[in-house]
């Protein structure tokens, strides 16, 4: 059990073990399958026995609903249209926030004067949950695209900036010393130590921002919209169709997961020097 962390030297030679019952039962993949099957069976059972009356749909019904949405237009567009509507908002907002917040965070950490001006303002806004901006965004920008993108920008701004800022501040001072010993200028310090060393933290911030962005777009779409995954969920809520609600939830989870995988791949390409914790 837990041999891979208990032993610093891992024996890579494979010696065949007999297929005992215990070994099969404690196999990770076997357990994964068991847990998923149990989960769906339980879900199906709860839905079938109508423990929540008709407010929980059976898994297969949800799947059917999703398949129907792919082919039949719902509220003016097919499923792809709704997915694209949400994804587009998330990407635009996320991009704007990242482009402003990451350089600002790096700049704040490098220059104490910028820090002295921006940090107090940032601290004022930081504890305010982005969702609290929904109402005032509608008041300012109406119920169109702008207000939704605005909320996403506000939401993804904070983790981006915070992580870029902390990433630079937590760079090991020895690395700066090395550059100084090698005769590098301040410019070299920034470009050869500071930025590369803080990149992993920046990317961690981007990942957090992305998940916040999905939450924000959902909040914005639930309050008012005419397209998007949040709209599907909201419509399901208003017309009391649990299949639609659950389908929307699963789709938004899938979309959020896919975009975060995308950022993960980008991270691996752009900064391969990141040390990651095994198995997570």
């Amino acid at each position: 059990m837990s041999n891979n962390i208990a032993n610093e030297t891992i024996d890579h030679s494979r010696n065949k073990e007999a297929w005992t019952l215990k070994r099969v039962l404690t196999n990770t993949y076997f357990l994964n399958v068991v847990s998923l099957v149990l989960f769906f069976l339980l879900w199906d059972y709860v839905a079938k026995e109508r423990i929540f009356h008709d407010s929980l749909a059976r898994p297969l019904d949800v799947l059917n609903q999703i398949i129907t949405l792919v082919s039949i237009k719902y509220a003016g567009s097919t499923l792809w249209g709704h997915i694209w509507a949400s994804t587009q908002r998330v990407l635009i907002g996320f991009f704007i926030a990242a482009v402003i917040a990451v350089p600002l965070g790096l700049f704040m950490a490098l220059n104490s004067y910028v820090n002295a001006i921006v940090k107090p303002l940032f601290d004022l806004f930081k504890p305010m949950p982005p969702i609290a901006w929904v109402t005032i965004a509608v008041l300012w920008f109406g119920i169109g695209e702008t207000s939704k993108v605005f909320i996403i920008v506000i939401g993804s701004f904070v983790p981006c900036l915070l992580n870029a800022y902390n990433g630079v501040r937590l760079v090991e001072p020895e690395l700066y010393d090395v550059i100084r010993v090698l005769g590098g200028s301040r410019r070299d310090q920034i470009f050869h130590v500071c930025f590369p060393a803080s990149f992993p933290a920046v990317f961690a911030g981007l990942q957090i921002s992305l998940s916040v962005a999905w939450t924000c777009v959902l909040a914005a779409e639930l309050t008012n919209s005419r397209a998007g995954l949040g709209f599907l969920i909201k419509r399901g809520m208003d017309t009391h169709k649990p299949t639609l609600v659950l389908g929307g939830m699963l789709l938004i989870a899938a979309a959020a997961w896919l975009t975060s995988q995308g950022v993960g791949i980008l991270e691996k390409k752009l900064c391969p020097w990141k040390r990651s914790i095994e198995n997570l």
């Binding site: 999905w214 939450t215 399901g236 009391h240 929307g248 989870a253 959020a256």
Partner: peptide, 18 residues
């Protein structure tokens, strides 16, 4: 892992039903 990527807000309609 299945439940994690669902934003908690997405649960609101279901909890209102329930």
């Amino acid at each position: 892992e299945l439940i994690r990527p669902i934003p908690p807000i997405a649960w609101i309609p279901l909890t209102v039903f329930w």
